[in-house]
Computed example of a mutant assay.
Amino acid sequence: MVRWGYTMMTEQAGPRQLVDDVVRAEQVGFDFSVTSDHYFPWLDSQGHAPYAWSVLGAAAQATSSIPLTTYVTCPTVRYHPAVVAQKAATLQLLSEGRFRLGLGSGENLNEHVVGQGWPSAAVRHEMLEEAIEIIRALFGGGYVTHHGTHYDVDSAKLWDLPDQPPPIGVAVSGPRSCRLAGRLAGRLADILIATEPKPELVGDFERNGGGGKPRIGQIPVCYDPDRDAAIARAHDQFRWFGSGWKVNSELPGPASFAGATQFVRPDDVAASIPCGDDVEEFTELIRPFVDAGFTDVALVQIGGDHQRPFLDWAEKRLLPALREL
């Protein structure tokens, strides 16, 4: 049976609201949660970008059962992998074993802020693989010294280490990243993460050692009793979503995303993002993730000020329908 998740979208709400909303998501019956880790919103209209790890620490204390997941953290430029390992181990302890560490090669949007430049895709994937190796080594306990192609670690050790380290997920978007995830599946990656319902992503992951491991997908939705209002809000805040990761990973700031999506029409957005309150429309647009073989699907309700109505509606209407899939 597919598990259904709720997204704490840090780009569209402040830290206190994000925690309040995931508490409500736990109450209404979502099976898990995921959290974006951004320094910038995609577009100015989203308006937020609090520090995800502080939000997750607060959420770990405010909730009691819902799993927490980074979706995703980039452990290569803005964060050193040794620091990511410490953060993840601490959060696993705070949440009493409910944390999953989702990792990816990142976006220029968030990583450029430390002034280290933005590497090519091939180099980013090399960096991600080396970073995961460091994180895994630190999760194993003891002192770690590493002098690699991209990172140095000098006698590091995690002093507060959970009995069971958090599972590690790897985000994929296309053939190159999928080959990386497949290569890592047998030895470093516990989970596949994707935002597109492509069966080939699941297939490649399973063929390369990921058989039987979770596959998490994600889709934006825009609930509103007024469908036209929902479409307008989705277009205003999420029209970047259909640009594809090859574009989205390279643009440096919200102004760039605004320019790149200036000709995207509201109808274009409504064709891929379920908008309104028609449960059948929502289930049909979400169904491709189920058909593609994803075991977990996280929903992103668009609009920071529209979370509570969505959560109430999801409890009564959407979640029961999704569970029928």
Results as ranks from 00 to 15, higher is better:
M1Y: 01
W4E: 01
W4Y: 08
W4P: 00
G5F: 02
Y6H: 09
M8R: 10
E11K: 05
A13N: 09
R16T: 12
V19Q: 00
D20I: 00
D21N: 15
R24H: 12
E26F: 05
D31E: 00
F32Y: 10
V34S: 14
D37G: 06
H38K: 12
F40T: 05
Q46H: 09
H48V: 03
A52S: 15
A52P: 02
V55G: 00
G57A: 15
I66P: 03
I66H: 07
L68Y: 11
C74E: 08
R78W: 07
Y79M: 09
H80R: 13
P81I: 03
A88Y: 05
R98F: 02
F99H: 11
L101D: 02
L103F: 04
E107Y: 04
E107L: 03
N108W: 00
N110R: 02
S120D: 06
V123S: 10
E129R: 14
I135R: 01
I135C: 03
G141C: 10
H147C: 14
D152S: 15
W159Q: 13
D160P: 04
P162I: 10
P167N: 13
G169A: 11
V172C: 13
P175V: 12
S177A: 11
A181C: 04
G182R: 10
R183W: 07
L184T: 07
A185L: 09
A189C: 12
A189P: 07
P197M: 11
P197K: 12
P199W: 13
G203F: 04
D204G: 14
N208T: 13
G210P: 02
G211W: 05
G212R: 03
K213D: 01
D224M: 01
A234D: 03
A234Q: 10
W240C: 02
S243F: 08
K246L: 11
E250Y: 04
P252G: 12
P254D: 01
A258S: 09
A258C: 01
G259W: 05
G259P: 07
E281Y: 02
E281D: 15
E284A: 14
I286G: 02
R287F: 01
R287M: 08
D291N: 12
D291M: 08
A292H: 13
T295R: 15
T295Y: 11
T295P: 14
L299P: 08
W313S: 15
A314H: 10
A314S: 15
E315T: 08
K316C: 11
K316F: 06
L318S: 01
P320S: 13
P320G: 13
P320V: 09
